[in-house]
């Protein structure tokens, strides 16, 4: 307890010292997310409907992380829509995956713990739903942050060249995503390696055969959280690019013309009209 309190204080101090105002803002985003997580875990523990808690907490998490940290603008709207699409898509994938692969509940190693028999008695919770929540939460961070990174990089490109074609903007987004995806996946994979280290020791110590390891519940349970978050953060890139390309064309170009009308000379408007007509062709 003491250790956690000290480390949290140190984290706050460092974030405010190095990040300044925005550092404090991201610390508070983290803090709010922690409170949301705490409350929703308690609600699930007290037999509230798991699916309802999941939907509400996921919405709250993404709203706080996207809009509180980054403001209300085209970038954040884009990533909200893209995240919602991917969450629906991957959520249903995870649902059928969990059902078919039988990986909810205690695995064979957990069952040997002293606590397991006590904790598994008289349960009115559905472990299947809780596992679903666990997977969706663990991919949420990677999902939201990758999408914001892509959309803000695209926004910068788009501001420099506002009359880009929709298709070209989409391809540009994919290209920008290439740089982001490698680092994101590295982070996630090392987190997964650190977490599943004990498991590898366990397999070595009890000399699991390879067939048993490949098919064991514990391995798939540990790996699929990380793998799903890697998959989500690679799928979000084309999705964000697509949504941005669609939204930018409709909203921003019209605004751009109106705001520039006051500033620019007539020649510029004429030349842009030519450009516009060529685009509409």
């Amino acid at each position: 307890m003491k250790m956690l309190a000290y480390l949290t204080m140190l984290l706050f101090f460092l974030m405010s010292a190095i990040g300044g105002e925005r550092g404090i803002k991201s610390f508070f985003t983290l803090f709010i997310n922690g409170i949301i997580a705490f409350i929703s875990i308690y609600l699930m523990g007290f037999k509230a409907s798991t699916m309802v808690v999941m939907v509400i907490s996921t919405i709250l998490f993404s709203v706080v992380t996207i809009f509180f940290q980054n403001g209300w603008n085209l970038k954040t709207k884009t990533s909200m829509i893209a995240c919602a699409c991917i969450l629906l898509l991957l959520g249903s994938c995870i649902f059928s995956f969990l059902w078919n692969a039988h990986i909810s509940g205690f695995n064979e190693i957990d069952l040997q713990n002293a606590d397991a028999s006590y904790m598994s008695s008289d349960l009115s919770l559905s472990m299947f739903q809780i596992m679903l929540v666990s997977f969706i939460w663990s991919m949420l961070g990677a999902l939201v942050d990758t999408s914001i990174a892509v959309s803000s990089a695209m926004y910068e490109v788009y501001q420099q060249e506002p009359y880009m074609k929709r298709q070209k903007l989409f391809y540009k987004g994919l290209k920008l995503g290439e740089d982001i995806i490698g680092t994101m996946i590295n982070t996630l994979i090392f987190v997964g390696l650190g977490e599943s280290m004990m498991l590898i020791f366990y397999y070595q110590n009890y000399q699991y055969e390879w067939y048993r390891m490949l098919n064991s519940k514990s391995l798939l349970q540990d790996l699929s959280g990380v793998l799903f978050s890697c998959i989500s953060c690679s799928l979000i890139i084309p999705m964000t690019a697509l949504v941005f390309a669609v939204l930018a064309k409709h909203i921003e170009s019209r605004k751009h013309i109106e705001s520039r009308k006051h500033i620019e000379s007539r020649e510029h408007i004429e030349s842009r009209n030519e450009k516009n007509s060529s685009i509409s062709e």
Binding site: S26, F46, G141, S229
Partner: peptide, 24 residues
């Protein structure tokens, strides 16, 4: 902000099932 968020969500997600069971 983004990196810290990623770590937060992946750790809280993986420790969720045991926490819920213990609170129950």
């Amino acid at each position: 902000g983004t990196m810290v968020n990623i770590l937060f969500f992946s750790y809280i997600g993986s420790s969720l099932p045991l926490l819920v069971l213990k609170i129950y």
